[in-house]
């Protein structure tokens, strides 16, 4: 573990709080994009599902980058996690729209 630096620690703390606020806001937003049981439609519109998938991808990336600190990690780890995210969410969205 690297030596502590007050400036960097303060910056990291702000980043962690900002990530938590964004993640919570995205969760609440996704909830309002999804209709409740009273809606008669059998499935969501494709546009809404795409928006929910994009929100899911953004949330996952925030967790990986800010909470797991991959934003400061070597290139191979940033590429591996971004690759996993892109393939996973693309496959899920295509699977839903099929």
């Amino acid at each position: 573990m690297s030596a502590p630096d007050d400036r960097l620690l303060r910056k990291d703390r702000r980043a962690v709080f900002a990530a938590w606020a964004a993640l919570t806001a995205a969760t609440v937003l996704a909830r309002f994009l999804t209709p409740g049981e009273s809606r008669s439609a059998t499935a969501l519109g494709d546009g809404l599902v795409a928006a929910i998938a994009v929100l899911g991808l953004v949330k996952c990336r925030l967790i990986i980058r800010c909470f797991m600190e991959v934003r400061h990690a070597p290139r191979w780890l940033r590429a591996a996690t971004d690759g996993w995210l892109a393939v996973l969410w693309a496959a899920l969205l295509v699977g839903y729209l099929l």
């Binding site: 996704a30 999804t34 929100l55 899911g56 967790i63 909470f67």
Partner: peptide, 28 residues
């Protein structure tokens, strides 16, 4: 490093739940 590793594992649990939540509850 033990704290860092255990917290990393915890974040993975959180990460997996975010995907499960979208799949089961939202994409319907």
């Amino acid at each position: 490093t033990i704290v860092e590793q255990s917290v990393l594992f915890w974040h993975m649990v959180d990460l997996l739940w975010v995907v499960i939540f979208a799949l089961l509850y939202l994409m319907r």
